[in-house]
Structures are given as C-alpha cells and as structure tokens.
Design a protein around this nucleic acid. Sequence first.
DNA 1: GTTAGCACTCTCTATTAGTGAGTGCTAATT
DNA 2: AATTAGCACTCACTAATAGAGAGTGCTAAC
Lengths: 341, 341
Amino acid sequence: MALTDRKLKILEAIIRDYIESAEPVGSRSLSRKYELGVSPATIRNEMSDLEEMGYIQQPHTSAGRIPSDKGYRLYVDKLMEIRRTAHKNRIKMKSDILKKYGELEQLLEYTSRVLSEFTQYTSIVLAPQVKKSRLKQIQLARLSEETMLAIFITNTGLIQNPLFKIPATMKQEDLEKISNFLNKEFVGSTLEEIETRMAEDLKRELAQFHSTVYALLPEMFKTLEQVSDVTLYLSGTTNIFNFPEFNDLTKARSFLNLMEERKTISELIARQDSDKFNISIGSENQIQEAKECSIVTTTYSLDQQTIGQLSVIGPTRMDYDRVISVLGQVSKMMNDILKDK
Amino acid sequence: MALTDRKLKILEAIIRDYIESAEPVGSRSLSRKYELGVSPATIRNEMSDLEEMGYIQQPHTSAGRIPSDKGYRLYVDKLMEIRRTAHKNRIKMKSDILKKYGELEQLLEYTSRVLSEFTQYTSIVLAPQVKKSRLKQIQLARLSEETMLAIFITNTGLIQNPLFKIPATMKQEDLEKISNFLNKEFVGSTLEEIETRMAEDLKRELAQFHSTVYALLPEMFKTLEQVSDVTLYLSGTTNIFNFPEFNDLTKARSFLNLMEERKTISELIARQDSDKFNISIGSENQIQEAKECSIVTTTYSLDQQTIGQLSVIGPTRMDYDRVISVLGQVSKMMNDILKDK
DNA sequence: GTTAGCACTCTCTATTAGTGAGTGCTAATT
DNA sequence: AATTAGCACTCACTAATAGAGAGTGCTAAC
C-alpha cells in the first residue's frame, strides 16, 4: 500500500494531536480540529490503512488511534519541521549565566538544568571524554610515604586527580623529573594519542628514571579514563510525573530506577561522534525499562572535536521538534563557552 | 493522666505493629498478637486514653489507631531497645570492600549505597567539611595567562581544585613562593584556624610577595568551603516506592522532588557536631515536604573531630531500631577506614 | 477495674447500569 | 470509483449501590 499525501497528512495530524493531548485520537475530533477537507468516514478508512501499515495502533477496539514507534520514526525522519528558534531569547539569557562558571562541573550541571527546564523532560549531560581531551598540564605530588596524587588538567576544563600507590623508594626528585618529562612530551596531545605513543617509546625513555614508573603510567591513564567515562549530570528526573503515561506507579518507579543506575544510563546513550541528532524511539532502545521512552542526543565539541554529549529522555510521545531545537541551541552555546575558555 | 506501665506496653505494641504492617492497629488484633494479659475492651479503654494524650490517632472513626509523631518520639526516646548488631556480619563484609577505595568520593558514594541497601530507605552521606579538615598540602599552578588552579589536599582525603583569576603580572616564581609559604604556615591546621589566623597576620607577611595575593587568598578559602558544603551523596531514593504511605503519586512525587534539591536536603540535615544520633520525626522537620518523613543522622570523625554526616530518611513509620543500628555500625566503619588512610 | 455484648460507623470491594467516544460496515451519493 | 451518511456495536470510564469486615464506644455484668 502506498503512503499517499493524504495519509501522511492524517498521520501527522494524529501524531501532533497525540503529542499534545496524550489521548487516543478519533476520526471525528481529527476532522473537527484539522482542516483535512474530508469527512470522518474517509479518515476512518485511511486510519484503518495506516494501522495496517503499522504507523498507528489502537489501545482497544473502540478507542481512537495512537502513533506506534514506527509512526514516530516516520514523523521524526520525514514530517517534522524543526522550529529552530524555540525559546531562543530565554535560552540566550541562560547563556550569559553559563559563561560565568569557571569550573567545568558547574557548567555541566547548570547546562543539565537548563535542558530539563526548557524541555520539561529529563536531561543527561555527559562530561567531556578524557580520551578526546588534550592534556594541558600534569602535576605529580607525593601525598604520603606510599601514595601519590596525579593532577591532570585538560583543555576541556576537566581536572582529575587520581591517587596511586608508589614505592617509598621513589624520591621527590624523581617525581619532578617524570612530571617535567610528561609535560614536555604530552601537553597538547589527546589521551588516545598518548596511549598509543606510550606503548611505543615511553618505555625506552622513562626506563632511565625509574623502572616502576613504566608500570605506573599506563595504569594512571587508564584510571583517569574510567573515572570520567561515567561522569554524567542528571536533571529533571521527576518531570516524568507530569506525563499521564507515567501516572502509573509501576512505570514511574521503573523509570526512576533506571535513572538511578548511572551505568545503565550510559549504556542507553552510547557514545557517538557525529554532531547530528541521534534519536532513539521506544522499542529502538535496547534496555527494557526504556522501551516506552525516547532519547534525543546531540554532542558538543571543542576544536572541531566532539567531546561530550547532551541528551534528553522522555516518553515516546515527546515534543521532538522542541527538544531538538533546544538541544541544538544549548549545544551551540556550549561550544561557544568552551571555546572561550 | 499518668502513663502507666500498661499504657506504655500497649503503645509500644501499637508502634511495633504499625512499623511492620503500615495498617491501623485495632484492639482485637493487638490482644491476639501480643501477650498483654487483658481483653480487647480494656485495650480499647487504654487506647482511648493514649489518643487523648496525643500518642496515637485515628485515621477515621471506625479504624484502628496509628502512632502520632509524639508517639514515635516517646518510642524513640524511651521504649526502643536498639539491636546494635543488625546485619552485623553482612556489614562487616562490605567494610572490606570499602577499605579498598583510595578515592574519598568513591568511598562516600559506596557508603551511601551500603546504607540504603541495609536500611531500605534513602541515605544521604555528607562529605567531610572542609572547615574541619586539616590541610595536608597546597599546590598552586598557573593554567593560563590569567587563571590559576589551587589544589588543596586535606587529611580527610578531600581534594579540591578551585580556579581563580590572577593578574597576568604575577610570575611563576611568585606562585611558588606563595605556595611554599602557605605549606609552611598552614599544613596541619583546619580551615577554621586558617581563617582566623589569616585575618591577623597574613596581611603583613604576604604583602611582601604581592599585594593582590592578599585579596586572593580569603576568596580562595571561601570558595573552597562553599563548594564542599553542598557535596552530598544520595542513594536509594526510589526505595520510597516500597512504602504504602507513598503509594500515592502526589506524595512520591513530592518526596522525590525534595531529593532533587540538594540545597533543601542540606537544610534538612543541619550540621551537627555530636556523635550521637539525631532523630527528627515528621512534623519536627522544618521543611514542608518532609513532614511525613523521619530522618536519623549520625556523624563520622577523624582524630576525635566530627567531620561529616550519615543520614537515613524514610517514612515516619521507620524501623528506628534497625536504622540506628546500621548507622552506628557504618559510622564506626567509616571512622576506622579514615583513620587508616 | 475489667470484660462481654452489641449497635453503630466507616472503609473497601464488587457489581451494576448508564454514558460517550469511537469504530467498522453497508448503502446511498457524488 | 471514491466519498460520505447512517447505524449498530464495542469498550473504557463513572457513579451509584450493596455487602462484608474491622473497629469503636457504650452499657451492663462480673
């Protein structure tokens, strides 16, 4: 069966209406509300076809239709027109506040708040990946007899301080030498580059300082990467209570449980590199608890390099237009702010 | 009216039963379940008295009684016997895991998990107060033309790195001098001590390095304090869904909203110094949204100095005995672990 | 002072009936 | 041949009703 123009028009009307009302849409109310130029009976026939094609579905025999995941997918890919300017001015205002934050953590947390405030859904902001960040400075400091603190400062504003055990025999002098060496060699490189280079030539050059250093460094970088890979900022989790589809305690609970597990969340919004929008609708999500949710993700970058992600998660009946618009603007904002640092 | 022994016995039975069942307790079922040696009719009379005295209340005329906040208060202060050893072995096991964490953040987060897991309520762990921590080391590092990174390492394992703007005229040499001076003067002192001392003699001694430093330092310490004063670790927020009294969407929502606002939470569990248990029951809480909750708080310490707090928040119908027992053990555990660092 | 007996209260759970929005089919209309 | 009007039918939702069960308070007996 072909998707005629009229079918598309009707499908779009159904989705628009359902996104707004969360109520199954009937043929009569559809013809009343939208200027489709045909009678409810005709709409009914078309709806029947659309259902057969899998774009909409009926909760029960005598109810109206609601969009299926496939329907939303079509809408998102073909029908939706993005109002790129939703909340433009108000977001601009927030931008000025954001610029004030010197600390990256605060910037990320506040960004997350802004996202959930403007979309009214739950937002997830992923911190810059250490892997993609360029090293700006390393400092090593002895803490006690046997522990050492490494301080990594990157161009993305990430500051990490992993602790390590070091042999008591290592002198302050050695630490300084190593520190100087690391700074000289690796400042400006990404961790990815450092990791590959390390395997090649670090061994040779560092062996002269201290043999344990060679064992220490790879672990050092590895720890660093692990830590920040799960660093995410959540905001607006309780917004789901605003949606009738989560007015069921079991569903609300399952969603909030999902949001309490940082590990599952990061599975849900797998890292992506493209700066386009990634939309995952309902059953397209791999994780069971998120099969009734949609996730829109975009990225933010520094020096043409994608470094982190911004996501919004809400019911499949999500206002995709607006979410995309807000995400786009906030992403642009982040890019600007990071550049100015 | 006097609180006779029999009245106390009955009150205790009511509270015990209600904590377990969450159902209003009737005279008949009470006499069946507990060996009170009197008939339901007698119990009814006593209950009537207890209600008049304000220890219990009736949800409606023909229902059983439930404890009032005043009743819980009496129970907690006088009746309850604490099973100090609840989950003793299993908590001991967790202790071994906890000891492995080198980073304070992980320790705190995991502690929070342990608390919510064993109590089945929501737990809040407050990070050590910077104010009460002793400075172990300071490092200053120039980040760019105009920004500086200060690294504070304290005896509690807290590592903070606030950013500051510094005038471009300040040289690397100056930073080192300041750094050395700060280390020499203040290592081993608490921030409280540093703050008072600074007002007195810092001015004179540091003025010789650079006049802007004098302006910089107080701000530096202040920032530091602010940051960590709101650092808290939450866990088990969704446990609230396990309790019938929160089976109401509005209530669950209001609780979870409360838990999303870090600021309000820290108001709720005001800092305390005593290492005893602080229990705040229902209406005793100042914040509206928490009037149906109880909060049990204790502290953890290092070198006889209280540095942080452990809290558990749940419905007023809380298993106070167990919560106190678990909190006590976990607190002891934290003390041990921190001491060994 | 304690207890048995009893009428009364109030919530909770089905059950029932009525309402309304919506569908699908058929036959008439364009 | 496509569209539409008409109509019987379906099903969720709401409100009303009845009955069961747990509990109370009062009175009178022990």
